[in-house]
């Protein structure tokens, strides 16, 4: 049933968020540390348990697939609720700091990517 997929997805997200929140408390920071990432790993592990009986039925998969497909519209809504006016009214220093940080980070991607790939090529 579709709700099994949605339920599984919700379970993974809540467990991930809980672990991320506890991690934040343990480290002593006011932030959720990696909650979404932990939830993703959990979903991957649970949906790949392997044994044929535990495999998700196609209809159950649709419950997860729907939310995956809603990703772009949700991101569009997310863009529409950003505080763009505040970003632009922060003055030149804030804008330059943001732009410079992004430019430097972009520039470093190919460097690190080559570093980690170690001559191994997959396409």
């Amino acid at each position: 049933m579709v709700i099994y997929g949605v339920g599984l997805l919700s379970f993974c997200m809540l467990v991930g968020m809980l672990v991320g929140d506890l991690l934040g408390v343990v480290i002593g920071v006011e932030a959720n540390v990696g909650g979404v990432g932990i939830a993703m790993i959990l979903l991957l592990v649970l949906s790949n348990l392997g044994s044929r009986e535990a495999a998700l039925s196609p209809i159950t998969e649709r419950g997860v697939g729907f939310w995956s497909a809603m990703y772009i519209p949700i991101v569009v809504a997310m863009a529409a609720r950003q505080n763009v006016a505040a970003a632009l009214s922060g003055g030149w220093m804030a804008i330059i700091a943001g732009v410079a940080a992004v430019a430097a980070s972009f520039a470093l991607i190919p460097v690190l990517a080559r570093f980690g790939q170690g001559g191994h090529n997959d396409s």
Partner: peptide, 26 residues
């Protein structure tokens, strides 16, 4: 739009995209 684009739905959809991701690449 604030609810739809808020952190709750955003994170929910992001987690959903992990379905079918390549574990080996990770």
């Amino acid at each position: 739009v604030g609810v739809m684009g808020g952190a709750m739905f955003r994170d929910f959809a992001i987690v959903a995209t992990a379905f079918g991701a390549d574990i080996r690449a990770l």
